[in-house]
Each structure stands twice: as structure tokens, then as C-alpha cells.
Simulated scan of single mutants.
Amino acid sequence: MSNKLEALRRRKIRVRRALRTAANGRPRLSVFRSSKQIYVQVIDDAQGKTLAAASSLDKSLKSDLKTGADVAAASAVGKLVAERAKAAGVTKVIFDRSGYIYHGRVKALADAAREGGLEF
């Protein structure tokens, strides 16, 4: 188990290092995926503030979702964070997958955020 966690930590550091160089002042769309839920934030690293956030635990989504740990939940969270980010005046972001493989729930969230109007 510790090898998997260590690999995730190394990937996370590698991804964040690449994001810092490529960001060009854009906010970061950061994903956290647990075994039961998915969370996402739009973070302005220059000011250190969260501009928008959404998760599968939001009251507007929780009643409609079967579980917070599937692709449908990730898509719903992606659309919701795109709406909230656009309301905050953010349209261009850089995607921070936090070391997770771009597959399954992470990919579904990213695709839904793009459909919702975020550019990355």
C-alpha cells in the first residue's frame, strides 16, 4: 500500500511542477478523488484563494446521484464547478489532476467542465 501512496505523491509533485511553469497566471482546477466522493476547486495561486468549488456532497447534486464515486457523479460535479467558475468570472484554467491518472472519473470531470464552458 505504501508503494501506491508513494507513487501518487511523486506523480502529484511532478504534475504540480509542470503546472507552475505552464500556468501563465491562470487559476488551477484541482481535483481530489476519494473512494466515495469527488471534489474540485478553482484556485488562484497568486492570491492564495479558492474562487469556486464543488463536490459530490453538494445538496443540489447529492439527491440526484446514486453514489458520489462514479462517472455520473464526476460529470455532474464538473458541470457544477464550470457554472460556479463562470459566475466568478473565470473561463480559462489549467487542469491539476493531482497525480491521478487521466482516466475514468477524472476524465469525466474534465470533459464535463469543458462542456460547461471552461477552457483548458
Rank of each mutant, 00 (worst) to 15 (best):
L5W: 12
A18R: 15
A23W: 09
E119I: 13
V77G: 00
D64A: 13
A18P: 04
L8K: 12
D70A: 10
R17V: 12
K92Y: 12
G116M: 02
S56E: 07
I38W: 02
R26A: 09
A52I: 01
R11T: 06
G78R: 00
E119P: 05
R9V: 14
R10L: 15
E119D: 14
Q37E: 11
Y102W: 05
K59T: 12
R9H: 14
G104T: 12
A23P: 09
V31E: 02
V15E: 14
G99L: 05
A53Y: 10
G117H: 10
D58A: 06
M1K: 10
I101D: 14
S34D: 05
V81M: 02
S56T: 04
V77D: 00
V93R: 01
R11V: 02
A7M: 11
S30V: 14
Q47H: 15
F32D: 03
Q47D: 13
K66W: 01
L29H: 04
A7G: 09
K59F: 08
A113L: 04
A69W: 01
A76E: 03
L109W: 07
S98C: 10
K107M: 08
T67G: 05
V42F: 04
I94E: 14
L5S: 12
V71Y: 06
Y100Q: 07
Y100H: 15
R114Y: 06
A76V: 02
E115W: 02
R97I: 11
D96E: 11
V42Q: 06
D44H: 09
G25Q: 07
S63G: 12
V42P: 05
V77H: 00
V77R: 00
K92H: 15
S55Q: 05
K36W: 06
R28E: 09
A18W: 01
L19G: 07
D96Y: 00
R11P: 03
A73Y: 03
K86Q: 12
A76N: 05
I38F: 00
R33I: 08
G116V: 03
